[in-house]
Design a protein around this nucleic acid. Structure first.
Length: 370
DNA sequence: AAGTTGAACAACCGCCCGCCT
DNA sequence: CAGGCGGGCGGTTGTTCAACT
C-alpha cells in the first residue's frame, strides 16, 4: 500500500544529536512520557522526526541502558544466541539486560563477527568454513536435528521476546496514560522506569539450560519423566521433518500462563493463552534451583529423541573446539615467523574460545550449526 | 606534521507488522 | 476488507577518532 514517510523530511535535522537536543528530549519524556513519537518533536521543540527521537531514546538516552564494554559472559551469550536465532537482534537483546539490540548488532558486526571469521568459523552459519563434519549422511542427520532444534529454540525465545516486548508496551502505555494526568515530574519519572520484571524477566536462558542439562545428565536423561520433573511426552517424538505441521507444544513462563507455539512452514508463531498477570512480581521463567520448566525438559528430551545428543553433550562441541583450535594452529603455522606477542595473543584467544566453547559444551543447544 | 586507513559507534533508511478506523 | 498510522526491526551508511605511514 506504500506508506507515507513518518514525518516531513524537509527542514528536519539529521545526524548526531547535540547535548541540547538530548536535554530537550529527556526533559520532555521525563515530564510527559513519550506518548506519540510523531507528535513528540513538535511538543518538545525538536527539529527531528519522531522516529529519530524514538531511536535516540531507545538506543541511547533511556535510563536503563548499560553502556561500555561487553563482558565475556555477554559475548558468550551473544554468540550462542546468534547461533540459535541468527540476526534477530531484538530477540537476542531480551537476554542481555540493559543492552539494546542496536548495540548488540553493532558489537557483533564490529567485533564478534570478525573474531569468528578469524577463527575460521562462518559467522553466519557458525559452521567451520572447511566443513569437517564428514559424511553426507552425518551432515544430513545433523542438519535435520539442528533444524528441529532451531525451531524449538526459535519458538521459545520468540515467546520470551514477545512477552518482554509486551510488558514494555504495557508499561509505556501506562506511562502515557499517567503522563497526561500526572501533576508532578517526579511521579512521572518514577513511572518511566519499566516495571521491575525480576532479574531479568526472561532470565538467563542459557544458565537455566545449563542447569537443566547437568541435572538431567546426572539423573539420566531417560529418567527425567520418572525421576524428576513432570513426565511429558516429547513433542519431537512425533516429529516428522517432511511435515510442516509440527506438534503444538506449550511454553511455560514461570508463574505466567502459557504461550502456545505453532510451527507453520518452519516459522514459529507464539500465541499467549492468557493475560500475563505477573508483571509486577519478580518472575522467573526457569530456575535451575527451584524448578525446571516443562518446556526445558521438552527441549532436552527432544534433542535426545532425535539423536542429537545421544552420545553425550560434549562430543560435538569437543570436535567444534578442536576444529577451531586446529584452525588457529594452522593459522599460526602458516603464518611463518610470528613474534611472541602474537603467540601470547593466540594463547589468550584460545583461552577465550575455550571459555565460550566450554559453555557451549555444557549446553545441548550449543552446536551452532545452522 | 600531514595524509591515509581502519575500527568503533551512532544514526538513518526502508521494510514490515499490528492496530485502529 | 482496505487503508492509514505508529512503531519495531534489521541492514546500511555516516561520523569520529586513533593508529599507522
Amino acid at each position: 500500500m506504500g506508506r507515507s514517510p513518518c514525518c516531513e523530511k524537509v527542514g528536519l535535522k539529521k545526524g548526531p544529536w547535540t547535548p541540547e537536543e538530548d536535554q530537550k528530549l529527556l526533559a520532555y519524556i521525563d515530564e510527559h512520557g513519550h506518548g506519540s513519537w510523531r507528535a513528540l518533536p513538535g511538543k518538545a521543540g525538536l527539529q527531528r522526526c519522531g522516529k529519530s527521537c524514538r531511536l535516540r531514546w531507545t538506543n541511547y538516552l533511556r535510563p536503563d541502558i548499560k553502556r561500555g564494554k561487553f563482558t565475556l559472559q555477554e559475548e558468550q551469550t551473544i554468540i550462542q544466541l546468534h547461533a540459535l536465532l541468527g540476526n534477530r537482534w531484538s530477540a537476542i537483546a531480551t537476554h542481555l539486560p540493559k543492552r539494546t539490540d542496536n548495540e548488540i548488532k553493532n558489537y557483533w558486526n564490529t567485533h564478534l563477527k570478525k573474531r569468528l571469521a578469524k577463527m575460521g568459523i562462518d559467522p553466519v552459519t557458525h559452521k567451520p568454513k572447511s566443513d569437517a563434519l564428514g559424511s553426507v549422511e552425518a551432515q544430513t542427520k545433523n542438519l535435520a536435528n539442528i533444524s528441529h532444534m532451531a525451531q524449538w529454540e526459535s519458538a521459545r525465545l520468540e515467546a520470551e521476546a514477545r512477552l518482554v516486548r509486551e510488558s514494555k508496551l504495557r508499561s509505556s502505555s501506562f506511562q502515557s496514560l499517567l503522563g497526561s494526568s500526572a501533576s508532578s515530574a517526579s511521579s512521572a519519572s518514577a513511572l518511566l522506569k519499566p516495571p521491575q520484571l525480576g532479574a531479568p524477566l526472561c532470565l538467563d536462558i542459557l544458565k537455566a539450560w545449563e542447569g537443566v542439562w547437568s541435572k538431567s545428565t546426572r539423573s539420566g536423561i531417560a529418567g527425567i519423566g520418572a525421576s524428576g520433573g513432570p513426565d511429558i511426552d516429547s513433542p519431537t517424538s512425533t516429529l516428522s521433518f517432511s511435515d510442516n505441521s509440527l506438534p503444538i507444544p506449550t511454553v511455560g513462563f514461570g508463574e505466567n500462563p502459557t504461550a502456545t507455539v505453532e510451527f507453520i512452514n518452519g516459522l514459529a508463531l507464539c500465541k499467549e493463552e492468557e493475560e500475563w498477570k505477573g508483571l509486577h512480581k519478580p518472575t522467573q521463567w526457569l530456575d535451575g534451583k527451584s524448578g525446571i520448566d516443562n518446556s526445558m525438559e521438552f527441549s532436552t528430551v527432544g534433542l535426545h529423541d532425535v539423536g542429537f545428543v545421544t552420545d553425550g553433550p560434549s562430543d560435538f562441541a569437543e570436535g567444534y573446539k578442536d576444529l577451531i583450535l586446529e584452525n588457529s594452529d594452522d593459522q599460526n603455522s602458516s603464518d611463518g615467523g610470528r613474534d611472541s606477542d602474537h603467540a601470547e595473543g593466540d594463547a589468550d584467544e584460545k583461552n577465550y574460545w575455550n571459555n565460550i566453547l566450554n559453555l557451549v559444551n555444557s549446553s545441548p543447544s550449543s552446536p551452532p550449526l545452522f
